[in-house]
Amino acid sequence: MHICLTGRADAFPVCAPGSQKASIPARKGAIRYEFSNIPDGDYAVAAFHDANGNGILDKMVGMPREGFAFSQNPPLRPRAPTFKECSFTLKGHGALHLKMRYIL
C-alpha cells in the first residue's frame, strides 16, 4: 500500500515532492496508518494497493488495474478526483476511513 497526504492541490493525487508518503504492507481487512506532526490545515489523501510491487498505480486504457482510495471517498468519474473533492480540514488529531476500490 502506498499512501500520500498533501496540503497542496498541485501535488494531488500524484504525491509530488513536499507531500508526506508511506509504504506499508497490504493485507486483507482494515489497515491503519498514522501520519504524525501534521499542522492544522486542509489536506487530501490518495492511496493505492501496489499489488505487483512496482511502485506505481498500474492502469489499462486509463483505468486503474490496482485498488485505490481517496479521502472523502468521492464518486467514481472518468478522471482522477480533484484536491477540492477529496480535501478535509485537520484541526488537532483526526481519523479518516478510506474505501479501497477495485475496477479491473
Rank of each mutant, 00 (worst) to 15 (best):
F35R: 13
S36A: 09
S36P: 00
N37I: 00
I38D: 09
I38W: 01
P39W: 06
D40T: 04
G41R: 09
D42F: 03
D42Q: 10
D42V: 07
Y43A: 03
A44S: 02
A44V: 04
A44Q: 01
A44L: 03
A44G: 01
V45E: 02
A46K: 01
A46E: 01
A47C: 09
A47W: 05
F48Q: 02
F48P: 05
H49I: 02
A51Y: 05
A51E: 15
A51R: 13
N52A: 07
G53Y: 01
N54K: 04
N54M: 00
N54P: 02
G55A: 01
G55C: 00
I56H: 10
D58I: 03
D58Q: 06
K59A: 07
K59D: 02
K59R: 14
M60R: 12
M60N: 07
V61T: 02
G62A: 06
M63N: 04
M63H: 04
M63W: 08
P64T: 11
R65I: 08
E66Q: 15
G67A: 15
G67T: 12
F68D: 05
F68T: 07
A69D: 14
A69P: 13
F70M: 12
S71Q: 12
S71D: 06
Q72S: 14
Q72D: 12
Q72I: 09
Q72R: 15
N73S: 14
N73L: 07
P74V: 10
P75D: 13
L76V: 14
L76W: 06
R77L: 11
R77N: 03
P78K: 13
P78T: 08
P78M: 15
P78C: 08
P78G: 08
P81N: 08
T82W: 04
T82H: 03
F83Q: 04
F83W: 07
F83K: 05
K84D: 14
K84V: 11
K84L: 07
E85A: 14
E85H: 03
C86Y: 10
S87P: 00
F88P: 05
F88G: 10
F88D: 09
F88Y: 11
T89W: 00
T89I: 02
T89Q: 12
T89N: 09
T89S: 15
L90F: 13
K91W: 00
K91E: 13
G92V: 12
G92E: 10
G92C: 10
G92H: 11
